[in-house]
Design a protein around this nucleic acid. Structure first.
Lengths: 144, 144
DNA sequence: ACATCTAGTAGAGCATGTCTAGTACTAATT
DNA sequence: AATTAGTACTAGACATGCTCTACTAGATGT
């Protein structure tokens, strides 16, 4: 299943857009949003699950390896902080929460995302014009 | 200079979005649009120049290496066809034009782009909600 | 003579994402 | 009691797409 558009099959995805399951480079704002929406610190595993519900991944769980690596990178950048949670029973797990820098970054992302939207909209208009067709209405997109 | 958003400097780009000069994976629809808008076949060099004027790259010329490689890949996929143009004087140059498959693909891209827009819009809304702020108005974005 | 423009190519590297596969412990099912 | 599914995380290999540096080579301009 695909998140962003809704091709009937893998074939069509490859034909059409040559994209992966998610928009590239937008897992960071997705993670920031998930953490900003949560009162408490979250484990990576939970973040993966919530990400599946976000518009970016629209139902299908993102690859955990990628998310864990992104979390680590974001912590290195100072956007997140984490503490090890070592319960008596069960595996050790890391709980992530936003730093002030993370909140600032998300704030900036909101503007960036608007710019992306505008840019993509312009490209879409130009493409329609070039084909000499009217801008078609927004199709049914997400899987939720 | 950046194409999509308008950060004051490289620093801010890195802080904010960790993105390159262009939205990832959208150079293909950009190229398709440029070719669809042109009556005649275009040289790679000209495509690079026109790309600089498109919303995706907003003024700054994209890396020619990347564009040439993408053109080759698109030809391999049957979206483009090319002929060598070997004038008496001057270097040999390749002229690209759209195939029927390329036109079909651009048509599908128009829907895909709408989905991207919608997805990014939803993410933006969720981010604003999570921060407890009103959805700010679309900022000034592109450089043209 | 030197710089700039046209037109393209080669190779290295980075960021991001994907795939396969594993560890380890718990809880529910058969 | 053994198997399966769920929680929680890690490692390595690979693919894709973009970026950077650097190069060839002819044409045109100063």
């Amino acid at each position: 299943m695909w998140s962003v558009c809704n091709p009937r099959n893998e074939e069509e995805l490859r034909e059409c857009a040559q994209l992966g399951r998610s928009l590239s480079r937008l897992s960071q704002p997705t993670i920031l949003t998930i953490l900003a929406a949560s009162e408490e610190a979250l484990h990576g595993y939970v973040i993966v699950q919530r990400a599946a519900l976000s518009p970016m991944f629209g139902g299908s769980k993102p690859d955990p390896t990628g998310i864990y690596r992104t979390l680590k990178a974001m912590e290195d950048q100072g956007l997140l902080s984490s503490v090890w949670d070592t319960p008596k029973s069960g595996p050790a797990k890391r709980a992530f929460s936003l730093t002030d820098a993370g909140i600032q970054t998300l704030r900036r992302w909101i503007d960036s995302l608007a710019c992306y939207q505008a840019t993509i909209g312009e490209l879409r208009e130009e493409a329609s014009q070039a084909l000499g067709i009217d801008l078609p209405p927004t199709p049914l997109c997400s899987a939720h």
